[in-house]
Write a protein that binds this DNA or RNA. Structure first.
Length: 345
DNA sequence: CAGTCGTGGAA
DNA sequence: TTTCCAAGACT
């Protein structure tokens, strides 16, 4: 059965591959490793629809890895704003500089794995897709498809080991890049998390999950913890058509990103409501935003004393032209807050 | 190993 | 409204 899977899947892929700008046509020449790498990093935990416009902007602005390596990190971070998981952007720059110094991308899974931001999945994906190497590519799609295909009852994440073994057993020696992308397309369009459209599936005749019962209940997953809810405050301080922005510490939430000053809210505790500046404040509204592991209700406080003397006590930030706030590269949470403040100004 | 780390769309 | 989840990496 194992060797049947690749054949069935690759045949299906020839006709049903999704058309994505970073992807080569099935069976065609190997795509540019730079574009494969960039797309794979952007696609980590991120939908193709969200990635598409960012991929276009990045490749237009930085057409190759040398260009990206030469870019100021700050500009790359700002260009990444809104896409989330910002450590990816920091690692992207670091990896680009390593690759540029090496004279090009390494072409083995093991070497790729050493680059910052490349884990087991991404290294395997690039080795297979960009360099035609046989690699066992396991992402959430593959986990789901394999769990159903082999009717694996053990719940995730404990089942990862057996899933990898099973994925290895069906990965072909040739065209493993197309095979990986076919598995992901199958998981994205047919064998999805909320549906199992078995009648449309090219693997229906070999799928054990379909025979053994309800494939939708696979893979079994451990229950998730409820998200806590936190409150915090962001502060809008405007003088002479400029707003005070800070750059957040490199590590942690929204690390390295420009932001409005705030009162220290975090996943673990509410903000302390302490303003960075004395004087009168007025309420600018509330932003509700959900992160991966907690909900945040962020109040926006607007400084009313915009005609007093030079604000003292403001350090570690910069005055940013309000008219160019879009170019500041604020993460979505603070972009929402800024929008609110500007609407109430 | 389990927690941290964004965001927007779908149900 | 709330939950789930999408081409995971890192600690």
């Amino acid at each position: 059965m194992e060797d049947r899977v690749a054949s069935l899947l690759l045949d299906w892929y020839a006709d049903h591959a999704r058309s994505l700008t970073w992807r080569a046509a099935p069976g065609s020449a190997l795509p540019d490793p730079y574009r494969v790498w960039l797309s794979e990093v952007m696609l980590q935990q991120t939908t193709t629809a969200a990635v598409a416009p960012y991929f276009s902007r990045f490749t237009q602005r930085w057409p190759d890895v040398q260009a990206l390596a030469a870019a100021p990190e700050e500009e790359v971070m700002a260009a990444w704003a809104g896409l989330g998981y910002y450590s990816r952007a920091r690692n992207l720059v670091a990896a680009a500089r390593e690759v540029a110094a090496m004279g090009g991308f390494p072409d083995t899974e093991e070497e790729l794995r050493q680059l910052p931001g490349l884990g087991a999945y991404t290294a395997a994906a690039i080795a297979a897709i960009a360099f035609g190497r046989r690699a066992v590519v396991v992402d959430a799609n593959v986990e789901r498809v394999v769990s159903r295909l082999f009717a694996i009852e053990e719940p995730l994440p404990g089942s990862r080991k057996i899933i990898r073994q099973r994925a290895d057993s069906i990965t072909p020696d040739e065209r493993s890049g197309d095979f990986a992308q076919a598995m992901m397309d199958l998981g994205a369009t047919i064998c999805t998390a909320r549906d199992a459209r078995c009648l449309l599936c090219p693997l229906q005749e070999v799928c054990q999950g379909r025979v053994t019962g309800d494939p939708l209940r696979l893979p079994v997953k451990a229950a998730k913890k409820p998200k806590p809810s936190r409150t915090g405050t962001a502060f809008w301080i405007e003088r002479d058509s400029h707003v005070w922005l800070v750059t957040r510490p490199g590590r942690g939430m929204l690390g390295g990103m420009r932001a409005l000053p705030d009162d220290g809210w975090s996943a673990g505790s509410d903000g302390d409501e302490e303003a960075p500046l004395s004087g009168a404040w007025r309420a600018g509204g509330v932003v509700r935003h959900s992160f991966t592991h907690f909900h945040l209700e962020l109040g926006v406080a607007i400084h009313a004393g915009d005609d007093c003397g030079e604000p003292s006590g403001l350090t570690g930030g910069e005055w940013w032209p309000v008219a160019e706030i879009e170019a500041a590269g604020l993460p979505t949470l603070f972009a929402k807050a800024a929008r609110l403040a500007l609407a109430r100004a």
